[in-house]
Design a protein around this nucleic acid. Structure first.
Lengths: 122, 122
DNA sequence: ATAACATATGAACAGTTATTCAGATGTTCA
DNA sequence: TGAACATCTGAATAACTGTTCATATGTTAT
């Protein structure tokens, strides 16, 4: 309903009010965009990217991942928690060992698109 | 060539050496994964996500974006620079005004996949 | 029950980053 | 040339985040 542009805090005169109003109408809900940024924030760490990339190929336990990435167990465990909170991985316990695996089919395609971008721009 | 697992720094005994070796072989090059994380790092900020989301719908100048997002011009300018360095946006100057637009077709599909993930998990 | 092992967790520290502020640069027009 | 405006930039600050360390939890086997 309220399509009025608030120019108080941007210290600019608005140049193209029509464009701004149109875009404002067409954009997704603010909340969704914040959630999206939060998702990318989770993906925006090399340790977590490497963990996910590993889990694309096999279910793995914490120690295996730590050995693979040459990092200590605690660091991996902390990051797995972050990934789990974002529902990107899930786990199952088998005795002492906890196995982690992917909990999302879309991450793979997000990664693939990202890699295409990278490979095109260098 | 060197598929030996370095377990020195992970303070774990390796449980499934076969799995670790297989995954190590199948994973993309380390460097690509770091680049990928860097890309997601750029996408992992709500201001930048909102800017890109706006640019999906129209080319816009800095002032317009600032007004749309209700932020000051300097903050937007700083973020546009980050987006440009990652080749996600490009710009053209028309007199005093600088117009920004998307410089990547893949970002849209990365966003779409991300939104699917978000919408499924709540 | 206790030792051994895999994993999880909380606190602390170091490094990174987004925004703000002040001012610089570049362009247009009178 | 100088005023007005759009944009850019560097420094400073405040907030956030990843890793490490020490320790806790949970499971198995003796």
């Amino acid at each position: 309903m309220d399509k009025k542009i608030n120019a108080d805090s941007c210290n600019c005169t608005i140049i193209h009010e029509d464009v701004v109003n149109k875009v404002k109408k067409d954009m997704p809900k603010e909340e969704k965009l914040y959630d999206l940024a939060d998702l990318f924030k989770v993906l925006g760490d090399s340790t977590r990217v490497r963990i996910l990339s590993a889990l694309f190929h096999a279910e793995m336990c914490v120690c295996d991942i730590a050995a693979l990435l040459n990092m200590n167990q605690s660091a991996i465990s902390h990051q797995l928690r972050v990934l789990k909170q974002s529902r990107l991985v899930k786990n199952r316990r088998d005795g002492k060992v906890v196995y982690y695996s992917l909990d999302d089919e879309h991450v793979k395609s997000i990664f693939d698109q990202g890699l295409i971008h990278i490979n095109e721009k260098d």
